[in-house]
Design a protein around this nucleic acid. Structure first.
Length: 277
DNA sequence: ATTATACCCTGAGTGC
DNA sequence: TGCACTCAGGGTATAA
């Protein structure tokens, strides 16, 4: 569900609601998410000012003033809803955590599949614990990421390009939708092995990947079934898909070949057999 | 070591 | 309408 653009959209929506405020109450409706939620989460976080809401890869990070960071992952089906007149008209049995801020805003974490989780880490140790100690460069706005460094990361491995884009240790934040979109835009086959990629191809793939991620953020992410912006609006980037979910549609580049869908490492992959080499 | 597979969980969609 | 089945945006513990 939420990939980098969706988590970024949620992060931007949470910033004005949380930064400078604190949690007055944290209601835990069930603890058994992917990992059990600490039952005393409220005691550890309530009434401590929130300094910063940020994103690393697909993780939301909420930094508190007392050197604690809330690590919040939305899994496949997680939603964050800030209650207003439009959002949260009715509750759901999957509303696992409800935050009330010092400004009386209600924020709901809803996650039917419960692949998401909430955990705490000292802020200063965040980069030393899993998974942050092994995460690759941020796909966007990372000063260490460029065509050369991306190429180096790719050629050290021998896996398919599609798998490489999904591997958070190689590059962080990309998921199944944007991996297919980026490969289509870059005209590279999802089956190409990473150690055959030239520098020029790596540069092209990175450029197109960043282009699709930026356009998706501008559209508020992609809404397939679960993603909803915290204010209740949907994202709109699904209308701009050129590859994902586009099997049996004509390739927008060549206008002559129908895109195909196949399973690759257990995930759906969409591509044009003619354009993507 | 690196690379593939199975699995966590619920809900939506399809075909019978 | 109901049932059986497949698939879904992710990540990790296993096996190969």
């Amino acid at each position: 569900m939420p990939e980098l653009p969706e988590v970024e959209t949620i992060c931007q929506a949470l910033k004005p609601v949380l930064e400078g405020y604190s949690f007055q109450k944290i209601q835990l409706n069930r603890l058994d998410l992917r990992y059990p939620i600490s039952y005393n989460l409220e005691n550890k976080l309530a009434h401590h000012p929130i300094n910063l809401v940020r994103r690393r890869a697909k993780y939301l990070l909420v930094d508190f003033s007392h050197n604690l960071t809330l690590i919040w992952h939305l899994g496949m089906s997680g939603r964050v809803i800030i209650e207003n007149k439009k959002a949260l008209l009715k509750t759901s049995p999957h509303d696992h955590v409800i935050f009330i801020t010092s400004n009386n805003q209600k924020i709901v974490y809803r996650d039917p599949r419960r692949f998401g989780f909430l955990k705490l880490s000292p802020t200063c140790q965040l980069n030393e614990i899993a998974p942050f100690n092994t995460l690759g460069a941020e796909a966007l706005n990372d000063p260490h990421l460029n065509g050369h460094t991306f190429h180096q990361r790719l050629i050290q491995r021998r896996i398919s390009l599609k798998s490489a884009l999904l591997d958070q240790k190689i590059i962080a934040g990309v998921g199944n939708i944007y991996a297919s979109e980026a490969l289509w835009q870059a005209k590279l086959s999802p089956f190409r092995l990473t150690d055959t990629i030239t520098l020029a191809e790596a540069e092209r793939l990175l450029k197109e990947l960043q282009d699709v991620l930026r356009r998706a953020i501008a559209a508020g992410g992609s809404t397939l079934r679960d993603h909803i912006r915290p204010n209740g609006d949907i994202g709109y980037f699904q209308h701009e898909f050129k590859a994902y979910n586009c099997e049996h549609k004509l390739c927008a580049y060549c206008q002559s070949v129908y895109l195909c869908k196949t399973m690759q490492n257990g995930r759906a992959t969409y591509y044009c057999k003619a354009c993507q080499q």
